[in-house]
């Protein structure tokens, strides 16, 4: 498939708006890594507990103080969203208290929590409380059918609990995402998992993330996807997206999407997920890490920490640093030097950069442009 002249022109205008957004870098969302602690020990975790000093975790007062400082210092006119990640957020016994306190500010009443769902399934009364404290969405991780999920996440019975948590989330009216990490041992199950989820959970989003060699997952792991397996994932998404997208205006439908694995090339962007993807780390997405360090998404290498809210004013860091996030020239090495897609992807997702700044893979390059 090739783009029409109209499509090419629209991509150019989109790119100009993206460059303007990078220049302006308005604060539009906060990613708060609430903790590195977790009740599971998944094989693929991108932000594992064993790599950090768990005692350095922010206190509830420090977290609330950070949000209050942001609301006071930043232009909040475009702010829209708080993402809470981990670790497992619900292992923080003070999580609800923190959400209660920060949601006193009207800017912080559109909050999502990404969870494995175990604690929610064990304590379903939490669903009633979360709604009071500005939580609007829940993402539940389900990484295959029962045996595969339980082996990957190393918890017998985990699938049943995560599945139940997702079902209850929909039942309680939360915008619910089923998040699936696609790997070499579950990709053949993904169509069945999609049908099961759509039929019995009815989530708003069925998201697939391609597995990354970060955190506990190694390059040479038997779980890593081959280029042909990446194509298999993309083909599944393209087929389901093409079948369903005309119904996506109806909020009761289940959308499919590829997460932020990377740019797919102009031929495919916008045809496998309901948006045109671009890495927004440090552009409009401020990250507060578990220990108060300032960066962006929690799966990005801690090499890319830009500041520390315990010793610095958050807005000063946001305004005066983050050069590596906003000027991508340093990324243009190797295959990127001659790649025709560079002008649109700017080197892809920052979580795909190793601490030495080299790129570990590119979906577009590794699959020969999905040829």
């Amino acid at each position: 498939m090739s783009l029409t002249a109209q499509d090419e022109e629209l991509f150019e205008r989109w790119r100009e708006r993206m460059e303007a957004l990078i220049r302006e870098h308005p604060l539009q969302l906060i990613s708060w890594e609430s903790t590195r602690r977790c009740n599971l020990r998944c094989l693929h975790c991108g932000s594992p507990a064993e790599d950090v000093d768990l005692d350095a975790e922010l206190t509830a007062d420090e977290v609330v103080g950070a949000f209050e400082q942001i609301a006071a210092d930043f232009d909040m006119s475009q702010f829209r969203h708080v993402n809470v990640t981990g670790g497992e957020p619900f292992v923080r016994r003070d999580l609800l208290d923190i959400l209660r306190r920060i949601s006193r500010n009207p800017h912080f009443r559109n909050t999502d929590i990404q969870t494995n769902g175990i604690i929610l399934a064990d304590h379903p009364e939490l669903f009633d409380e979360l709604d009071r404290y500005g939580v609007t969405g829940l993402g539940i991780s389900i990484d295959g059918l029962e045996a595969t999920h339980d082996a990957f996440r190393r918890i017998p019975g985990g699938f049943a609990k995560s599945f139940e948590a997702a079902r209850l989330s929909v039942e309680h009216g939360y915008v619910t995402t089923v998040s699936v990490v696609a790997h070499a041992k579950n990709i053949d199950e993904i169509p069945a998992l999609f049908e099961l989820s759509r039929r019995e959970i009815r989530p708003r989003v069925f998201r697939i993330m391609t597995i990354d060699p970060i955190g506990r997952m190694d390059f040479d792991s038997e779980y890593m996807l081959s280029p042909d397996q990446v194509r298999q994932v993309i083909d599944f998404l393209k087929t389901e997206y093409g079948r369903g997208c005309a119904t996506y205006a109806d909020q009761s439908t289940t959308m499919v999407e590829l997460g932020c694995g990377g740019w797919l090339g102009r031929d495919l962007e916008g045809l496998v997920r309901p948006f045109i993807w671009h890495c927004i780390a440090g552009i409009n997405n401020l990250g507060i890490l578990y220990d108060g360090k300032l960066a962006s998404c929690s799966n990005i290498s801690r090499e890319f920490i830009e500041g520390d809210l315990r010793t610095e004013r958050i807005k000063d860091v946001w305004q005066n640093r983050y050069e590596r996030y906003r000027d991508s020239d340093w990324k243009r090495t190797g295959p990127c030097v001659t790649c025709g897609e560079w002008a649109y992807c700017y080197g892809g997702p920052l979580h795909g950069r190793l601490p030495d700044h080299t790129d570990f893979r590119c979906l577009w390059n590794d699959t020969d442009g999905f040829a």
């Binding site: 629209l10 205008r13 957004l21 005309a246 045809l271 309901p274």
Partner: peptide
Amino acid sequence: TSAEECRRRMLQWPNPVEYTEYFRTVFGK
């Protein structure tokens, strides 16, 4: 409302990284 047409609407959305009004506009008839 083909996927290709929905993409053209996405590409014209003011905020390039926007993603109910969006869904109505991009995916509606």
